[in-house]
Amino acid sequence: MTDQQPDGWAAVPHVDTLRGTQEAPVPAGVPTPARRRRPVRRGALVGIVAGGVAVVVLAVTGVVGYVSQSASHAADRPVRAFLDDLTAGRVDDALDAAGIDHDDQDVLLTDAAYAKASGRVTGYRIAATRTDGDTATVRAYLRQGGRDVAATFTLDREGTDWGVFPVWALEAPELGEVELSVRGPAGTPVEVAGQRIATSEDGTARLSALPGTYAVAVDGGKWFTAEGASAQVSGFGVTGSAPVAMTTTLTSAGEQAAQQAVDRWVDGCIASTDAAPAGCSFYAYGEDPEYAYSNQKWTLEQRPRVTVGGWLSRGWAVSTTTFGRATFTADISGPGGVGTASAGPMNVNASGYVSGFTDEGATFESAIGNGASDTGS
């Protein structure tokens, strides 16, 4: 007998595919097979991981950005920018960064002048920063001439960036000064770090200067000179360098010109036809008003000898070591007839001072007027 399935049986769905059907219970003692979990699709997993990473990246980026902006807006940043330019010799940039006013008269506040200074600022370190409301104070040490020089800078808050980060502006630091005093003629040319200036009427000069040591030299041409010196400016916020005092002395050409100036002065007095030459150290007196005088003449019998010393308040001192001698003669006519009158010989004192020089030579001024101190006048 052959087993046959009824027609259409094969089309009956399997019980597992029927809704509402349940698998038969597992008999006791029979192990239950592990239930497999549906695997998460790879695309979904990548999306979840990527989303988590994005959140982390955004957080890290935000932290890094905040830290970076905080550092770039720190109160010491303008100070660093100023000192970076200064140590690199970019004087114009440094002055602009610090808001330091200057003009053409500030001959030492240039790249060229600062390049010739020694003992410049070659480095620095920030020691401390203190913020008090809208004001900040930055203490630094400048490396200058092989030693550390303390400096303090003040900054003001000028607002904020993005309403969060403070914007600080550096107050212009007080510059030091090169102070000069030249014992010599007013307007004496002086070179400071290669820059030429002229002293004032009282022989002084004051120049704003950045930290450094500046060579100073008097330029008296061929007439006079002075020993070279240097002015040291330490850091900022100081009143000035130790005053540099320079005393001029005549060169051999200057001494010769001084002697020639004295000789011209004596010759000018001798050339006068007055009994009392104006501005001279000798004169004749005792004229008789009843007589007429003519052919009045001075004759120099001996020229005075002088020495030229150091600078006094009005010039290089000229001292008479040996008086000159001069006589005065004149023709006279009057009630007693005609004749010749004479006076002397009398001293010619050439003491005075040389007040300066021109291209033509020295300028001599007598310290004795009309023979007031002469013996034998």
Rank of each mutant, 00 (worst) to 15 (best):
M1T: 13
T2V: 14
D7C: 01
D7R: 04
A10S: 11
V12H: 05
D16R: 14
D16W: 10
Q22T: 13
P27M: 13
A34I: 00
R36Q: 06
V40C: 06
I48S: 08
V49E: 02
A50N: 15
G51D: 07
G52V: 10
V60W: 08
Q69L: 14
S72Y: 11
V79Y: 04
V79F: 07
R80A: 12
A81S: 04
D84I: 10
D85F: 06
D93R: 10
L95S: 12
D96V: 12
I100N: 14
D101C: 00
D106K: 11
L109H: 03
L109D: 06
L109P: 12
T110A: 09
D111V: 12
A112C: 04
Y114L: 08
K116W: 02
A117C: 02
G119C: 08
R120A: 10
G123C: 12
G133R: 14
Y141K: 09
L142D: 00
Q144Y: 04
G145C: 03
D148Q: 08
T152A: 09
F153A: 13
E158L: 09
G159C: 03
G159R: 02
D161N: 06
W162I: 14
A169G: 01
A169I: 01
E171H: 13
P173R: 08
V178I: 00
L180R: 01
R183I: 01
R183E: 10
G184L: 02
G184I: 01
P189C: 02
V190L: 08
V190G: 09
Q195E: 04
A198Q: 13
G203Y: 02
L207G: 01
T213I: 10
Y214F: 14
G228W: 08
S230H: 08
A231T: 12
V238I: 15
T247Q: 07
T247F: 11
T247I: 05
L250D: 07
A258W: 00
A258L: 07
Q260D: 13
V262D: 03
V262M: 05
V266N: 00
V266S: 07
C269V: 06
A276E: 10
A276R: 13
A276V: 10
P277N: 11
F282D: 11
Y285S: 15
P289K: 11
P289A: 15
S294T: 15
N295M: 03
Q296Y: 04
W298R: 09
W298E: 07
T299G: 13
R303T: 12
P304S: 11
P304D: 02
V306Y: 08
G309R: 12
L312R: 11
S313W: 13
T321R: 06
T321F: 01
T322H: 08
F328K: 01
T329E: 13
D331R: 01
I332C: 12
G334M: 15
P335T: 03
T340P: 02
A341C: 04
A343Y: 14
S351M: 11
A362V: 15
I368M: 12
N370S: 15
